[in-house]
Design a protein around this nucleic acid. Structure first.
Lengths: 218, 218
DNA sequence: CGATACATTGAGGAGGGTCAATCCGGGTGG
DNA sequence: CCACCCGGATTGACCCTCCTCAATGTATCG
């Protein structure tokens, strides 16, 4: 259980994950040191302030990175799905809290492993840069887009990251979408209703399924 | 002019800049390959879509990273002052435009140089991670803070980054602060007036000087 | 079948956007 | 030396988007 499972390799190899493009030697080294983490919905992977001593690769499920202003106002900084990495920190400690959105399994790569391998570092560098680009995108949405535009942008993003098609399985609730988009749940719900009335999406079923009737209209 | 000047070294060594903590050998190598860029106010360092083939270190002056929604709505993603680095991109091309806020001078380090040195790469990695943390902070501000809180947060940030004291030299106009904070210039001006009425700051003179009367009250 | 959790919808209010007038300092030209 | 102008900051009045609060609907679970 301490080695990267085959399913992990399959999952993490896709879409620019950590293990993609690594040669057999490196992959073997990683398998040898990677730990295994399993979380239930709502469980904390790491908390803000805790030591940042490992990177995590999402095998199955989804994880979100959260930050709080006071005790009440939550901002979700990012969603991480199968194949994504979480756990980067600028300093010795995490500045945000990572929480599982549903049942999730991840592999854990100790920080120390990074220091020993140049190719690995370079690879991780690319991932961090993509995370940065993603965060800058969010700055634009939060700073300059209307509620309707933000909801559409989220659906476009998730449609792309979760593999397109005419049905989208959203692993989060309306409340999480709202806290990601800097809106209230009621506002997100209203915008979703508007998209439904325009025939762009279908009904958002409680199990997270959202039919995308006209993907191009998003 | 193609070597890092002493003033550059002095500037970039501070506060986690690129050259800080590099040993003499590395610093020498960098001096040998670093180019020199001088910009007037409003000039473009690089544009969105142009090839990302170099990193830049700000010697003097200030640079901002901008993104546009349509042709009208501008979002300023970050400000970069003396000692900061700009130019990271997730792909082969820039996703945003870098513009000088006033007269600025920078050193230019070709991308190719990165690939040849592990220590250099590791150093740059730390800088990218700090940029990411900064961007995530902005997500929180833009998503969950009121206009008053955003303006105060900006002043706290600039007060810290521009070297504290009881007077702050802001290299940008109200319009740029607004586009950074996701607000309108009128709103920023109103909040600054409120801070002035509360005796926390003084009058914002046209040359960019802002007295900070009670730094602790921010 | 009630209880709970969440989505949805409605009504009303507030924060910040929009538009416009005024102010203010600096540069220019007579 | 002064009048004029120009760009940007400031302030006011009004309005709109989104928030707030509350009621209702709906699916899941004990």
């Amino acid at each position: 259980m301490l080695a990267l499972s085959d399913t992990c390799t399959a999952a993490i190899t896709g879409r620019g994950g950590l293990c993609a493009c690594l040669n057999a030697t490196l992959l073997g080294r990683l398998r040898a040191v990677a730990g295994d983490v399993r979380l239930e919905a709502g469980e904390v992977l790491f908390a803000a302030g805790s030591p940042a001593d490992a990177l995590y690769g999402v095998r199955h499920g989804a994880v979100m990175l959260c930050s709080w202003v006071g005790q009440e106002r939550r901002q979700i900084l990012s969603f991480h799905f199968s194949g994504d990495m979480v756990g980067f920190a600028a300093g010795p400690n995490h500045h945000a809290t990572a929480i599982a959105l549903g049942r999730a399994s991840l592999c854990r790569i100790p920080e120390a492993e990074m220091d020993q391998d140049g190719a690995l570092r370079g690879h991780v560098m690319g991932i961090v840069q993509r995370n940065l680009a993603q965060s800058l995108d969010m700055q634009v949405r939060l700073g300059r887009m209307s509620a309707a535009e933000r909801v559409r942008a989220l659906l476009v993003e998730l449609h792309g990251r979760l593999g397109g098609g005419h049905e989208l399985h959203l692993p989060m609730r309306i409340a999480e979408m709202a806290d990601y988009l800097g809106l209230r749940p009621e506002t997100v719900s209203r915008e979703m209703s508007a998209l439904r009335h325009d025939g762009i999406v279908g009904v958002f079923s409680p199990d997270g399924m959202l039919p995308i009737l006209r993907p191009e209209a998003l």
